[in-house]
Design a protein around this nucleic acid. Structure first.
Lengths: 393, 393
DNA sequence: CGCTTACCGGTAAGCGCTTACCAAAAGAGC
DNA sequence: GCTCTTTTGGTAAGCGCTTACCGGTAAGCG
């Protein structure tokens, strides 16, 4: 309970010191655990702190210590239709951010979030403003041009997510290639589907390019016909997926036997559009996703997809950033393994017991791709081989 | 591109000044738009800034200005099983945070996020740490005891979300009462269901209590049998909803004609559990949600629910906080109106055209409850009367 | 060319905290 | 009671930036 008769201005350690009858040096020592203050001194300081409701000013601490204990995270918002249903895409980013946050907590850091609209022009100043308030930066997706990136990276350490490794920066990504290969292999080799299409994400996204490349390579390797022309260009959103399907059907085009979507959001829109037209999944067309967002398992049919360790991605990004901040060294290129999650939308039958909540979802580890770049693969906990696990729901 | 031959330490305005051949005062004037620097001066300063890749230190600015341009947001994470599928609940909070972020951007503020685990003990110090790094705080849910809240509120302005208004604090919430009334009225009066149950959220949540109370009142007012005993206690999660249904069915209990869930997550789990047991929604049992999370429309059947203007909730929270920070005055109790979204899970038939993406979802404005507390209702944009709107997907 | 009006440079104080320093005081041990 | 060891108080500098002040210099004008 704050003392009613306290002065007007904000509290400082001087107020605490005089209240406790000690010097500011002692207050600081107690608060920072430096030196070995006597128990009695500590007591009096702590009591004064609680009585006054004192909170140290972070800016002053940061200035004095040269450490803000803040990491900045910058990403792009869906689009500029601010308050419309902007449903899409936010799941993915938020899960990663949650991972960053959890890892940051462990080090006493907090996370400074800043989103930027897709049509926003002055990106660099905005990122710079965040950089000035943080000890390091984590950048989602492609936020900046290479030159803008370099400018910022000269100021604070920067980790990019799902980008391409660049000199002077650090990057964390998931093993898109291995995941896509495992997925296509399952569809073509296991199910025997002869035609597969890739419904793309935004075409300028590095993730999308990597997935497309692996898709085509694996389809070719297994002798399946691969479709991925401009008519299959989505944008990572459910609306984009639905639009592609509706356009194809409106033109009375034959659909391929399986549609590999660039992400789960897209698959969601695709399945919705197909259902409206009375096309059965997976009987008529199989559909797969990529990401394994939480709702993927709740769709009908439950979505076969690639699970990316999104929380771990965020946590790893923070950890290497922290390492860079505190020691000056940080791993410049980390690749995390992904997992094939077989549910029902690919054509597999459910292993769900009908009477009790129980076994479901078959995770299959995608073998890490050796891409010859010397990237390291972390996270053995994701390296489980084909077995059944208990589902949380 | 950073100059290679720059000194070791971080750049300061002194470096910029000497590079541009002007004084630090001029640099500061240019950077802050104070005074009226000559065009030539501005040019040279800006050029030096970009050449050097200079970024002003936020901590020093904050210390000098007494303004950090940061708002803190604190909330609780699902639970401490950090890297397990923590699916649930994160949607809701993240949408609100997005609203905060968007509103903050408009004022040049950034958002400092800090989550706290449910089993975390020392909450107050954690919140205090965030408070020290921010100009104001937005607290989700019930984060602190009244005394802890007061202690923090003595330091920085605080806005609580969906809590109960308290003196000295500001609060923003949605009109739970009106929403629940509209929902129950629709089920009982429009559909004629004689038995309805309320599958609760966490029982200590103010939102949950408000919804329960309105549920019982409206059911009674319309002569329906209301069930809401301990066997109907959920916890806002899909798993919780499924657990309740499974337990009831395992005991061979008759289900009510309609199940009103405390939130969409719960409804999701309920529908999933019912589907497993072969119970048809809405033919056998109607199910409704609360929140209108993005995926609600993609469920089968699409979920009838109450839309809370979650982004606006966040934006409003920021706006009153900003007002308090900058002017010292802020509205202490804001109530936002909600909207009944009729889809199919209540038993209504879809108005969806089968051949084109198009009209869907009937929003019906819930009349704002006059609760006699003098609270004001904002947001006329939600006050649309019954009509059909185009769905985004 | 002399005058008024910009604008600018240099300087200094101060934001709240940390930390080093040293002298002074309090405790411990005999 | 007298050393010998902690622990403390007072002081000061400094983190990087903003801003006020004011004498000086450059531009604008008649």
């Amino acid at each position: 309970m704050p003392d009613p008769k306290r002065q007007k201005g904000p509290l400082t350690i001087y107020d605490v010191a005089s209240r406790a009858g000690v010097s500011i040096a002692s207050v600081s020592r107690v608060l920072n655990g430096q030196g070995t203050p006597r128990a009695a001194t500590r007591e009096r300081v702590m009591q004064a702190v609680t009585e006054l409701g004192f909170v140290r000013d972070g800016a002053a601490r940061a200035l004095s210590n040269g450490l803000k204990e803040v990491v900045g995270v910058v990403f792009r918002r869906g689009d500029e239709t601010l308050f419309e249903d902007e449903d899409e895409s936010l799941l993915f980013i938020d899960v990663i951010n949650r991972g960053i946050d959890v890892a940051a907590q462990r080090r006493g850091f907090d996370v400074l979030i800043s989103s930027i609209g897709y049509n926003d022009e002055n990106v660099t100043p905005r990122v710079a403003a965040v950089a000035g308030k943080a000890d390091g930066l984590i950048l989602h997706d492609r936020m900046l041009s290479a030159s803008g990136l370099n400018r910022i990276a000269g100021t604070v350490p920067v980790v990019t997510l799902a980008g391409t490794p660049a000199r002077g920066l650090m990057n964390v990504r998931c093993d898109n290639e291995a995941g896509m290969r495992a997925l296509v292999h399952h569809l073509v080799a296991d199910h025997g589907y002869g035609t597969v299409a890739y419904l793309s994400g935004r075409t300028d996204s590095p993730d999308n390019r990597a997935r497309l490349k692996a898709f085509e390579a694996e389809a070719a390797a297994n002798g399946a016909e691969a479709q991925a022309g401009p008519e299959w260009h989505g944008n990572y959103s459910a609306a984009g997926g639905a639009r592609v399907i509706n356009a194809l059907l409106d033109e009375h085009r034959d659909l391929p036997r399986a549609i590999v979507c660039a992400n789960d959001q897209t698959a969601l829109g695709v399945m919705h559009a197909l259902a409206r037209r009375g096309i059965m999944v997976p009987q008529d067309v199989a559909v797969t996703g990529f990401d394994d967002v939480p709702v993927a398992r709740h769709l009908h049919p439950p979505l076969t997809t690639i699970r990316q360790p999104m929380q771990e991605l965020g946590a790893m990004a923070f950890d290497i950033l922290y390492s860079k901040i505190s020691t000056g060294k940080g791993d410049p290129d980390v690749v995390l393994p992904v997992q094939l999650i077989i549910r029902e939308s690919c054509g597999c039958t459910s292993r769900v017991s009908r009477t009790t909540a129980g076994k479901k979802d078959s995770p299959v580890t995608a073998p890490a791709s050796s891409d010859g770049t010397g990237s390291r693969v972390f996270g053995r906990r994701f390296a489980r081989t084909r077995h059944v696990r208990v589902d949380g729901t």
